[in-house]
Design a protein around this nucleic acid. Structure first.
Length: 194
DNA sequence: GAAAAGATCTTCT
DNA sequence: GAAGATCTTTTCC
């Protein structure tokens, strides 16, 4: 079911990743409304060695093969959830990992949920899910309906977007498929070599 | 302030 | 049975 609402996401992952910068996620939880702005993303698709969909469709990544505008949440490292926005055409395994967001509304609730304050609440993939209360039960959710929705915003100027190598992967390390808003403090530091 | 290790569990080989 | 799109705390300059 390709929704016109998310037609702007039915594009190659790289393009969708750039269009998502500056867009907002609205999460309703415990009677509160949390609104955050996406400031950092990474593109993954079926032809990408580092993607979960590279080896075909499985029970876990099934949501990524849905039409654009769905949610894909996976659990990793035994304790962290990561939030992705499905893009591309129906049946093609592509999506955009949301790496960092900036609270616009309900930041006090987010800080209370995280047990800390400042940018450390939402400047990482696992942190976003903890802050917004997202887990695998929401994987495959339609982002045009509550309790979590995606709101489109005007595209950013190309000069406001920086492109770089992705973080935390061991395959296709050289692919430049990470995008973030230039100079935004929530964006994770580029080098994380262990 | 930087670096290393611990925590912890689902999914695929 | 091993690896993984990670985060927090501790330890050591």
């Amino acid at each position: 079911m390709t929704r016109d609402t998310f037609a702007w996401l039915a594009t190659p992952a790289e393009q969708a990743a750039k269009r998502l910068l500056g867009c907002e996620l609205v999460r309703e939880i415990d009677g509160h409304t949390l609104r955050v702005r996406i400031v950092e993303t990474e593109a993954y698709d079926q032809a990408d060695e580092a993607s979960h969909t590279y080896n075909g469709r499985t029970k876990r990544n099934d949501a990524m093969f849905k039409s654009a505008g769905h949610l894909y949440v996976y659990f990793t490292y035994g304790m962290h959830h990561c939030l992705n926005i499905v893009c591309g055409p129906d049946g093609f395994g592509s999506g955009v990992l949301v790496r960092a967001v900036e609270p616009i509304e309900g930041s006090d609730i987010i800080e209370a949920r995280r047990g800390m304050t400042g940018i450390n609440c939402t400047n990482g993939p696992g942190k976003i899910c903890a802050a917004l209360g997202v887990d695998r039960s929401l994987s495959g959710h339609d982002l045009s309906t509550p309790p979590i929705q995606l709101v489109q915003r005007p595209a950013l100027a190309p000069t406001a977007i920086t492109t770089g190598p992705r973080v935390g992967i061991s395959k296709a390390v050289h692919e430049l498929r990470r995008f973030y808003i230039t100079g935004n403090p929530y964006v994770s530091k580029a080098k994380r070599v262990r």
